Simulated assay, not measured.
Amino acid sequence: MSPDRTFITAEWLSETGGSERVVEQLAAALPRARVFTPVAFAHGAPSIDRSRIHAAFRHPEPVMRRREAAAAMNAVTWPTWGRTLARRADLVLASHHMSSHWTAIYSDVPHLSYVHTPARYAWFPELDDRASSSVPARALSAHIRRMDLKAAPRVVAYAANSHATRERIQQVWDRDAVVIHPPIDLERFAGLEPSPDVAPFLLGLSRFITYKRLDFVIDVGEAAGLPVKIAGGGALEGELRERAARASVPVEVLTGLSDVQVAQLLADCTALVYPAVEDFGLVPVEAMAAGRPVLALDVAGTRETVQHGVTGFRFPELDARAWGDRVADAAALSAQDCRTRAASFGAPAFRQTIVDWVAGSV
């Protein structure tokens, strides 16, 4: 198989989040592969040379604010692109969280799939109820389930980003997967120290969407009597600002931050509060790389990354008072222990594991 005829597929390359960072590392592991995505933001996945990115829709920011529109872009693109791959590709590696392995339906080219999660709003609405919000959203979820069940038997091999995701793949697609934890860029945090005289605050960092539960971060800040900073961006910005205005502690909502600013924010915080049920969750690992502890749920991905009583604390439920009572204990944990834990999720090891997995699967 020719490296020049290898394609990496991704649902979209938008503002850099966990899945976009993985696509960047997949592209680094396979440096001659090209990257196809239905929609590419101007600054999505910045480490990938623009000449390697093939996008059906560029600069889609206005319509990408609506998930239904983004999904429609995916739905109309994959059939045509899948048939094109039959002529142009020797191998496809999908970075999948909604639809990117669907090209397997339309092509006999060997497909591998690195899965962040089977689309949770389609398969696990108890974890993400966005699909219940409208008739189009419910129709989209049904379409995702149909297409996934067509694609899954045609994919040669699956890798999961966590043991929790592996279990979900087995449950809904009846396929096994190897577990390859996603990487973080440790160089972003090398030598990073808290800003001089920084005042204590709790941090929430993620996309502004419902299941991230950023409102609960504010609840914990109120319980602990500490200021809160909420960083990221997304559709719920207005609601978060309204909640911040009602809070009994100072709350800042920060958007449009650079990677450098985000890294410093992680280094400066007293603790990262991470109430989402995540398949893996890169942000908690990044917080530990910055030397800061994490407060998280004792489920799914954070159960695999946050060491209870060593790099943070895990909780059985969303009880703001219980979380707030642990902030002082978290602040006293060793920054070096946090960094040591994060180092086990470095990018070089991930890239080599991906290369070995690809070579052993085809």
Rank of each mutant, 00 (worst) to 15 (best):
G238Y: 05
S95H: 07
F201P: 06
F208W: 00
E252P: 06
R246I: 05
L236S: 01
G232S: 07
V253F: 04
R207G: 00
D325Q: 15
I230A: 00
V63N: 02
V251D: 03
S113L: 07
A71R: 13
V251A: 03
V172P: 03
L205A: 05
P316Y: 14
S258L: 09
A359T: 08
Y158V: 09
R175V: 11
T302M: 09
T103V: 15
A151L: 01
T353I: 00
M1N: 02
L192I: 11
T165K: 01
L93Y: 09
A42E: 09
P136V: 08
L205P: 00
Y158N: 03
V362I: 13
A343H: 10
A94W: 12
S134P: 12
M288Q: 14
V260K: 08
V251P: 03
P275M: 09
L240P: 04
R341L: 03
D215R: 02
A332Q: 13
Y158F: 15
G191H: 02
P183Q: 10
P194W: 04
L265N: 05
F189W: 06
E126D: 15
G281I: 02
I184K: 07
E304I: 10
G309C: 10
A199I: 00
H163P: 00
W123E: 06
G233R: 01
R138G: 14
A199Y: 00
E193I: 00
R88K: 13
V178K: 06
T270S: 15
Q261V: 05
A320W: 15
I180N: 04
A190W: 10
I48R: 12
L266Q: 13
H54I: 15
P60L: 01
W173Q: 13
S107G: 07
F350Q: 01
S162F: 03
V355I: 06
S334V: 05
A359C: 00
V299F: 14
L272H: 02
L214S: 00
W323K: 09
W78T: 10
M147R: 14
Y114N: 14
S113P: 04
A142M: 09
V35E: 03
V92Q: 11
T311M: 08
H59R: 11
L127N: 06
A290P: 11
R241M: 07
Q261R: 05
G233A: 06
N161P: 06
A359I: 00
F41G: 10
S100C: 11
A235E: 13
T80K: 08
A72Q: 04
D185G: 04
